[in-house]
């Protein structure tokens, strides 16, 4: 059994680390496709990248049900760490989750399994936090939408290769939909539901 002494730490400075991490996430969300950096020092349980851990401590609490994929829940470390540092309830039903932490993006479940929100309350949707292989190298994705001046180029190794094809349901569902935050180490990129793929290269 893990004792408190063995538990990875949270933020070094709870208040200012959460603030700087939030500003990175807000900038990422306001400028889809741009790569933002999470600067805060944060302990990470096994299987969780620094960016994902920092976002968890910034946005999760007792009001936000969290869903973990098979990779994240392979050991009880992540759930225990979330419970200790964020008091966030981990739920088995992905359709009621506020956030879903995806450690193994290649096995991302069908998006229909998450909450899209309702037409009256489209904000009641699941935000996916997806750990990917790279946000600086790999195939190029050309994006457009609010927050982007003309078009934005994102170079990323994203495991469900068809992620953007799957996210095209956002266009039909809008204003309902799924917002995604891609994480690699301490880099983050946000793909809100308004972002559209123009073209993808190799």
């Amino acid at each position: 059994m893990t004792t408190i002494a063995e538990m990875p730490a949270g933020f070094a400075d709870k208040v200012l680390s959460a603030q700087s991490t939030f500003r990175s996430v807000m900038d990422a969300m306001a400028r889809p496709g741009s790569v933002q950096r999470v600067a805060a020092d944060v302990g990470t349980p096994a299987g969780m990248m620094r960016g994902a851990a920092a976002i968890a401590l910034t946005l999760f609490d007792h009001d936000t049900p969290i869903w973990l994929d098979a990779a994240m829940s392979a050991t009880p470390d992540v759930a225990r760490w979330l419970k200790f540092h964020a008091s966030a309830p981990v739920v088995g039903d992905s359709s009621i989750a506020s956030f879903a932490l995806i450690g193994d993006a290649a096995n991302l479940p069908a998006l229909e399994r998450f909450a899209f929100g309702s037409s009256e309350y489209p904000d009641r949707s699941t935000t996916l936090i997806l750990q990917v292989d790279s946000l600086t190298q790999g195939p190029t994705f050309e994006l457009k939408g609010p927050g982007i001046d003309g078009s934005a180029l994102l170079q990323a190794m994203i495991k469900p290769r068809d992620l953007f094809q799957r996210l095209s349901i956002n266009e039909v569902l809008f204003p309902r939909g799924i917002d995604v935050v891609l994480v690699h180490d301490d880099h983050i990129v946000a793909i809100p539901r308004t972002t559209r793929l123009i073209a993808s290269g190799v």
Binding site: M26, F60, D61, D123, S125, T127, D179, T194
Partner: peptide, 23 residues
């Protein structure tokens, strides 16, 4: 901090759905 987290989550949804009023 709990209030800030709640407001921050609302701000992120507001940016994702431009013009929609998040409670």
């Amino acid at each position: 901090e709990q209030t800030k987290r709640m407001i921050r989550r609302a701000i992120l949804k507001a940016i994702a759905i431009p013009g929609y009023q998040v409670p």
